[in-house]
Design a protein around this nucleic acid. Sequence first.
DNA 1: GCATTTTATGGAAACGCTTTCATATACTGG
DNA 2: CCAGTATATGAAAGCGTTTCCATAAAATGC
Lengths: 336, 336
Amino acid sequence: MSATIRQVAREAGVSIATVSRVLNGSGPTALETRKLVRRAAERLRYVPNAAAQNLVRSRTDTIGVVLPFFAGEFYPEVVRGLDLAVQEAGWNLLLSTSHNAPADTERALCAMHGRVDGLVVMTPALPLARLAALAQDLPLVLLNAPTAGHAFDVLSTDGYGGARLAVAHLIALGHERIAVLAGEAGNHDADARLAGWRDELQAHSLPIPEAFVLRGDFSRESGVISGRRLAELAARADGPTAAFVSSDYMAMGAIWALVEAGLSVPGDVALASFDDIPSAAYFNPSLTTVHAHTQELSARAAALLLARISSGTDGGPHRDVLPVRLEVRASSGVPR
Amino acid sequence: MSATIRQVAREAGVSIATVSRVLNGSGPTALETRKLVRRAAERLRYVPNAAAQNLVRSRTDTIGVVLPFFAGEFYPEVVRGLDLAVQEAGWNLLLSTSHNAPADTERALCAMHGRVDGLVVMTPALPLARLAALAQDLPLVLLNAPTAGHAFDVLSTDGYGGARLAVAHLIALGHERIAVLAGEAGNHDADARLAGWRDELQAHSLPIPEAFVLRGDFSRESGVISGRRLAELAARADGPTAAFVSSDYMAMGAIWALVEAGLSVPGDVALASFDDIPSAAYFNPSLTTVHAHTQELSARAAALLLARISSGTDGGPHRDVLPVRLEVRASSGVPR
DNA sequence: GCATTTTATGGAAACGCTTTCATATACTGG
DNA sequence: CCAGTATATGAAAGCGTTTCCATAAAATGC
C-alpha cells in the first residue's frame, strides 16, 4: 500500500491538517514545518489518494468523453484536441465509446457519473432526451449535434456550409451532374452535409436526381460500396462526372473502388470530400476536402466545459458553429 | 446535487446498510425490502457516488493508459483494443499522453495514482527505472518495451522478426541494395526493426552501407524528409532500389516525397513497411507491410492487466511476443 | 416447546483526505 | 507592559460509501 497522509504526519511529527496545508498551500505554515513535511512526504513517496480527494472536494478534475467509435483518424483527432486542452489545465480524460448503440451509451454515461466533473459527448444517433436524463446535472458539451429542443451547449462544424463550398467548387470546375456519397440518415452531420449538397445544386438550378444519392456510413468500407455504385452510374452517358463525398474516409474507399473499376480520379470522376483528416493531403490523389478544424473544435469544447465547471452554468446555452474552408487538392478536376 | 444513499434510506424507511446490501446484492435482504429500496432509488434517480465507492473499496474499476501521442491511426488502434476489452469487463479507461517527454510522463503517472487500478504504458523513450518508481505498486503492463532489467509484464510485437520478413521479401524480389527508413535511436521499436533489417541483409551477405540508414521518428513528416533523401540516393547508380520503412506513416510520407521527385513506387523504388494500419490497404499504391496485430496486442494487455489486478501479481513477469505476418501488396515490386 | 441455527436489519467504524473551529504562541501599537 | 491582532497548529467533523458486528426475529431440529 501507498503511504497515507497520516504516516507522513507521524514521520514529520505534525498533524495531518498541517501536512494537508503544506502540500496544498492552503493555509499559513512555518518555513521550518514546510521543510519537515516536504522531506517526510518525499521520503515516504507520498502521493495523495485521488479517490479520497475526489470525495471530500466533490471534484474529480476529470472530464468524460463519449464518442461513437475509435477508428480511423477523425475521432482520435477529437480526443487529441481534448487531451491537449485538458492536460494544460492539469485535468484528466476518461474515455468511453458508445458504438452508436443506446445501451452502450447509457452504460458509458452511468459509469461516468461521479468519476467526472463534466462531459463532452459526440454521439450522432442518440436521442437527446435520454441524454438529458442520464447526464443529470453534469455540465455537458455536445459536439456536432442539433441545437433544437434542448439547452445543452453545442459546438459544431459547419457541415452544411462546407458541403455547399465543396459542391460550388465542383460546379465552378464545370461539373453539372454531381452525385453525393451521403452518411446515414438521422446522423446530424450526414443530414447537414446532404442538405448542403442539395441546396447548392438547387441554387444553380442543376438536376438533383434521387439516384445520385448514395448512402453510406462515413466508413471506408461503405465508401468502397458506394464507390462501386458510383462507377456504374458514371459509366452512363447521363451519369455524374463528379461527386461530393461526405467524409474523407468514404472518399478513400470510393477512390479505391473507382480505380478498381478502371476509372481515374479526377480524370473520369472528380471528388470533393469533407473533414480534411491528416491523411487527406498525403493520399494519392490528394483529396480536395473541406477542412473541419476538428482538433480546434474539441479544444474549444474542453475550454468551454472547464469554464462551465468552474463558474457554474450561468447564462444560456452556448452555441457555436465553426467556419470551414475548402482545401483544393488533386482529387477534384475538370470534367471529361 | 445527486441523491445520496442516506436519502434513499430515508425514502425507503430502512438503514443505509440495507440500501447498500440491496443495491449491491451483498447480503441477505427480504423481498419486500428489496422492492422498497429499488423503488426509492428509482424515484430519486440515485446513482452511487463513484468517488466514495472508490475510496472505501480501494478499487476504481478503471485502468490507465499512457501513450506518447494521439496522432495517426496507430495509437488509436491501441486504445481501441483496450477499450473493447475493458468495456466488456465493465471497466473504464483513463487516458493520458506523454509526448515522449519525461516531465509529461511523470505528471501523467502521478495523476493516475489513486484513479486507476492498473496501468498500460507505451512510452518508448522512458527510462524504466523511473517508471518503476512512479508506478509504485500498481500493476503495470508494458507494450513494446525492452524486457531486460526489470520485472514488469511486457507484451510486444515482433518488430525484429517482422523487419526480417519484410527485408527477406524485398530480397526475394531480387533487390540487393536496400535502404532503411528507421525510427529514433533509443526507441525500442525503432531499434528492433533496424536490427532486423541489418541482420537479414547480413544473412544474405548483402552490403549494409551506413548511408542507407535514414533516421526519422515514425511520423509522416519525417517520412517525407527521409523520402527526399531516399530519392537522392536512388538516383545514383549504386543507390538503393528498395527500402524497408519502419512505419506505414513514414512510408506514406516517403511515397509522397518520391512521387514529388518524379520517381514511381514500386517502379523506381520498392517499399515494404511496418504496422499495417487500416489505411495501408487503401493507400495508393497499397502498402506491402508487416501486420502488427496492434488491436489484439492491446486487448491482450488489458486482459492480462485485469487478471493481475484481480488475482495479485503472483508468478513471474509475463512476457509475450506476438508473431507478425507480411501483407504483400503493391508498394513492393521487382527492381528496375 | 426449547435450544439452536438461519435470515434480516441497524448501528457504527472505517476509507484518506480537506476544512472549520478553537487554541496557543508570537508579534504589534500605544 | 498589556490589550489586540496576526500566525501557526491540532482536534475533530464530514464527504458517501461498504462492511463488520450485534441484535432481533423467524425458521429449524430434536
